[in-house]
Design a protein around this nucleic acid. Structure first.
Length: 312
RNA sequence: GGCCCGGUAGCUCAGUCGGUAGAGCAGAGGACUGAAAAUCCUUGUGUCGGCGGUUCAAUUCCGUCUUGGGCCA
């Protein structure tokens, strides 16, 4: 075990998959076993005060193994992929226990860690605001035409206003062409260089549905409504994470004075949709080693993990 | 019992001045490089409540029955 721990010095295990797939429990067990630590890569569990609705680790979990990047951002601050990878790599500079189990379902952020972000310098907020008001006043057609002219390869859709604004912002501010950055190798200095593997957990849809049903019930019992109303009352209704599954339903529940039955089924529905989108995202990553928690697949995964940690 | 308004896609509803119908949501699939649990794309045949009548043609007009809601008895 001592030798194994030694060789685990700089190793990273990504534990990925849709929400409610049992990632965290498995990771906790392994982190205990190998005396490592756990790092969050879930875009909602970053935030303080949203623990119930984001299914964040409990106090008991936190006490068992060192956890990082959970609940470390307070309203009205918001995390971006860029900020996250900075925080992540800053964490690696600290004296933390490896192996590192990086747990979460936000595929975009996992990609950002592994491949880095395009090398675009930060753009002042007013810059984006100006483009957004241009969009609001004139509609998307003009900006879309500008995009097509400067970046003919772009696949961004006219209606995808968020990506449209972002692309225009890059084009005007930096002279870089978004869709060209895609085909060029990323020169990001933060690209992950430590040895890593990716382990994914998932279930059949029916099993997810059952788990989501129970989990949602529990969240409502544990106070997801209070969690949400706290931020509404303090004027943070537009805080980005409140637009995510569970919280946005609570916002509507409070506003329209709906029934708990409505809330329960709305959250379940939203969560199932999320699961589907997460599955779609992870499907294209062929490096992921999958398990459905069946005894055989768990055995297989454990063996792969042992092997990875023992390799030089 | 009388009068009025409804019964159209899984749900909420539009519509057809008569030529068998369409949105939103849900469902299914997909995209994704600084909001990502977000954002966006693709995908809609259903006895148009039943039965009769008028008509070349009815979901659309007429009659009748049925069913939900409201008002009056």
């Amino acid at each position: 075990m001592a030798a194994l721990t030694n060789k685990s010095q700089n190793k990273i295990i990504f534990v990925v998959g849709p929400t409610a797939s049992g990632k965290s429990a498995w990771a906790l067990k392994q982190a205990k076993k190998f005396q490592g630590s756990i790092v969050n890569i879930d875009s909602v569990q970053f935030y303080k005060g949203l623990e119930v609705g984001s299914a964040a680790p409990t106090a008991a979990d936190l006490a068992e193994v060192p956890h990082y990047l959970y609940g470390y951002v307070s309203a009205p601050q918001e995390v971006t992929a860029g900020r996250y990878i900075q925080d992540f790599y800053a964490l690696l500079e600290n004296d933390i226990r490896f192996p590192l189990f990086v747990v979460g379902g936000t595929g975009f952020y996992i990609q950002a860690i592994e491949k880095g972000m395009f090398d675009v310098e930060p753009i002042p907020e007013e810059y984006r605001k100006a483009i957004e008001s241009e969009l609001a006043e004139l509609g998307p057609e003009k900006l879309f035409a500008e995009l097509k002219e400067k970046d003919p390869e772009s696949k961004i859709h006219l209606n995808d206003h968020y990506r449209l604004v972002r692309a225009i912002e890059i084009l005007r501010h930096s002279d870089k062409v978004p869709s060209q950055m895609k085909s060029q190798p990323t020169k990001n200095k933060n690209e992950l260089k430590l040895p890593s593997i990716k382990i994914g957990f998932s279930f059949e849809k029916e099993i997810f549905a059952e788990r989501v049903h129970l989990r949602t019930k529990q969240m409502i019992a544990d106070g997801i409504i209070n969690e949400t109303t706290f931020f509404i009352k303090n004027g943070f209704e537009n805080w980005a994470p409140l637009a995510s599954v569970g919280f946005k339903e609570c916002v509507q529940f409070v506003k329209d004075n709906l029934s708990t039955e409505w809330l329960q089924s709305a959250i379940e529905q939203g969560t199932m949709k999320l699961i589907k989108k997460q599955k779609t995202w992870f499907k294209r990553d062929e490096a992921i080693l999958w398990s459905d928690h069946s005894p055989e697949s768990l055995k297989n995964i454990d063996a792969k993990l042992d092997q990875f940690l023992m390799d030089d």
